[in-house]
Write a protein that binds this DNA or RNA. Structure first.
Length: 186
DNA sequence: CGGTTTTGACCCGCGC
DNA sequence: GCGCGGGTCAAAACCG
């Protein structure tokens, strides 16, 4: 509906200055992650190589970790669709896709997701699932799809940037930070 | 009892 | 204009 408009600038309430919270804290520290990230290969209908190298047809894509350009895109992102029905339109927001070899479709990347749809895709006997970040001010989306070619491989596509910290990351990092502070006194 | 999943309907862009 | 493929909505079911 039209009731949920993302309010302006999210107040920085985090150490460091209003960073773009890219997905995946705990994803990158793969200690808590069983599946291993493998090399993206050519896939039908999607230019995976372009996505990962930051020069696909969407033009504005960047590989992850490029926080500077992410900030810029995040600022320009709020200027967008006001379709009559209030539906989301094709806003050029950063996308990022990768494959994992995993038994379960959803991997714990530290954020909370609410599933809002599932569709069967052509050329694949497995459905694609659509998730959205449950944080109110955050409209990051991701979709998960298992390859019909190789059942053990799951493709996850992230769209957008989190504008809030990851709870799981804090929960993981807090003890560490405390210990560092303690040790820093000597 | 509140949040999440399920699932069919709906919507929209695109190619013919 | 129409059909298809893909993305989203929303109500009901489900679950802790």
């Amino acid at each position: 509906m039209e009731g949920q408009e993302a309010p302006p600038p999210p107040p920085p309430q985090f150490p460091s200055q209003n960073p773009p919270y890219l997905f995946t804290p705990s994803l990158l520290l793969s200690s808590s992650l069983h599946p291993s990230i493998i090399e993206p290969q050519s896939l039908p209908d999607i230019d995976w190589v372009g996505l990962l190298s930051g020069q696909s047809g969407l033009g504005e894509n960047r590989p992850f970790m490029d926080s500077a350009s992410m900030v810029a895109e995040n600022g320009a992102e709020e200027e967008k669709d006001k379709k009559k029905g209030g539906r989301m339109k094709k806003t050029t927001r950063p996308r990022f896709a990768f494959q994992t070899r995993s038994a379960d479709d959803v991997l714990d990347d530290g954020y909370r997701w609410r599933k809002y749809g599932q569709k069967a895709v052509k050329n694949s006997k497995y459905p694609r699932s659509y998730y959205r970040c449950t944080h109110h001010t955050c409209n990051v989306k991701k979709q998960v799809q298992r390859l019909s070619k190789d059942t053990s491989i799951v493709v996850t596509t992230y769209e957008g940037i989190h504008n809030h910290p990851c709870e799981k990351m804090m929960e993981t990092l807090t003890p560490l930070l405390k210990q560092m502070q303690f040790l820093a006194r000597f």
